[in-house]
Amino acid sequence: MQAPVGRAGEERVGIVIPIPEPHAARLAGLRAAAGDPFAAVPPHLTLLTGLPATDWNQIVEHVAAVAAATEPTTLRFSGTATFRPLTPVVYCPVSVGERWCRTLHAALQAGPLAAPSAYPFVPHVTLGQGLDDATLDALEASQAAVEWELRADRVSLYGDLGDADWKLRATFPLGTL
């Protein structure tokens, strides 16, 4: 899901598992072909987003420690689902590794990033967002039988000043303890 828009000048945190090639190009191509207004955003699995950045030093230390203590894993994605009618999003859910994602999410959403979530955490990769229902329906149907996997071996930390211009702060390899 897209993070809530923050107030201008209020920096927010985003933490994701980046999607590697060849999947990144395929997913970006799907979004671009559908006319997705967020197609330029690199494909990713969001772990946390929209939380206020109160102390970047503490946040970096926290994310680095969680990443170091988390072993890499293989995630499998199967089929499609949607967040409609709540938000106009079609996504590919995690079918193998969901518990691992939830455990990583919970570990990250602690310490300097402890805050209530606006939505329940659903491990997924967005396929289309902010599109009309007919386009989302077509995208959902066209990807319903697609399965793919990736090796989740790093997390990336982003910052945003409330203008939806997320900047990469750092990438941390998993399982370095």
Rank of each mutant, 00 (worst) to 15 (best):
H44V: 05
W56A: 15
E61T: 14
L51P: 09
A65I: 09
D36W: 00
Q58C: 08
A65P: 11
A67I: 13
T46I: 05
A53Q: 07
A65Q: 11
L45F: 05
W56E: 14
V60G: 13
V63S: 02
D55V: 07
L51Q: 10
N57V: 14
Q58V: 09
A39F: 05
A34S: 02
A64S: 15
A40Q: 12
T49N: 13
V63C: 06
L48M: 09
A34D: 00
V60I: 15
L48P: 11
A65V: 09
I59G: 05
H44C: 04
V63R: 01
A39L: 05
I59D: 01
L48Y: 03
W56F: 13
N57E: 13
E61G: 12
Q58H: 12
A39M: 05
G50K: 00
A67H: 10
A53R: 02
A69D: 14
P52C: 05
H62A: 02
F38P: 03
H62G: 08
Q58S: 14
A64M: 10
V66Q: 04
P43K: 02
P52S: 04
V41D: 01
E61C: 08
T49F: 07
L45N: 11
G35K: 02
A68F: 13
D55G: 10
L51A: 13
L45M: 12
T49A: 14
A39Q: 01
A64F: 06
T49S: 13
H62E: 09
A67K: 08
V41G: 04
A65L: 11
L51C: 11
V63K: 01
V66P: 03
L51G: 07
D36E: 00
P42V: 08
L51N: 07
A67T: 10
L48K: 01
A53Y: 02
